[in-house]
Design a protein around this nucleic acid. Structure first.
Lengths: 139, 139
DNA sequence: TTATCAGTTAGGAATAGTTACTATATAATA
DNA sequence: TATTATATAGTAACTATTCCTAACTGATAA
């Protein structure tokens, strides 16, 4: 990804083009496979050691907010506990940060069948969980 | 859930039955809807203010390890970023804490069709993500 | 019932990841 | 080029969780 393309992307989103943002976005694109913040920080600092950690966090947030990149995990980050230990799925209610059980046998069968037909080479599946993100609507 | 049932559960798992464990497990069962640690701590402290926070964390871990309860989130807890913003899914490789993209149009169609046929009353779905948990096997 | 001991707990210190703060700097604009 | 709103550096603060250790206790077996 060339610097000019990066600048385009920022411009399209009406984000001010700063050297820090360009560098951080370049880095995220260059890193494969879902880096965490620390990995991004390290990689950015290799090229520009003077970009501050706070800026990197803030910039990543800005990018996520504007759909330039995404976060693998959308809901809040504290661990949640679940008294159910059977195979079930979850609704992630974005507005109020709630998690609701979603139990549906047809969905389980559907997934079971799909992954039986579509084995992932060399990968042993332990469980498959569907995350349904959205919101309750009041009409 | 009666205290005796709680004691049964702990006994089945060969866990020492302590007042702290009984109280914490009772609390988790009594709280609906995926409490986080803080909510559990607060609820436990309402009845037993002298159970220490460290104990509660440790006990919850023990319960999860022994399959008494589960954690909604299994992989590591730091945020991961993703340069892809299109609809795709993830393999969660447990052994080495890696996240790998899983892109499959058939799966997307399957899910789209399923949720079109199975609307969730009052809930507007924004996105559906499949989390495939497991490990790579070397043969 | 009591003695033993491995496992558990309380309480506080330490840590890691992230966010907040603020004075200074700078990109976009007119 | 001057203006202004926004972004940045550097650091302090915060939050969730883990670590540490001396004291304690449930389970077991005599």
């Amino acid at each position: 990804m060339v610097t000019n393309q990066i600048r385009e992307i920022l411009k399209d989103k009406n984000l001010k083009i700063t050297p820090q943002r360009v560098s951080i976005l370049e880095t995220v694109f260059s890193l494969k496979n879902h880096p965490n913040a620390q990995q991004i920080i390290d990689a950015v600092h290799k090229k520009n050691p003077n970009i501050s950690v706070g800026t990197i966090y803030k910039t990543l947030d800005t990018f996520v907010e504007n759909g330039v990149i995404s976060k693998v995990r959308h809901t809040d980050e504290t661990s949640r506990y679940d008294w159910r230990t059977d195979n079930h799925h979850h609704l992630y209610v974005e507005d109020d940060n709630q998690i609701v059980d979603y139990i549906n046998d047809e969905l389980n069968l559907l997934l079971e069948d799909f992954f039986r037909r579509n084995r992932i080479p060399g990968f042993e599946i332990k469980s498959v969980k569907v995350h349904i993100n959205g919101n309750y609507i009041q009409e």
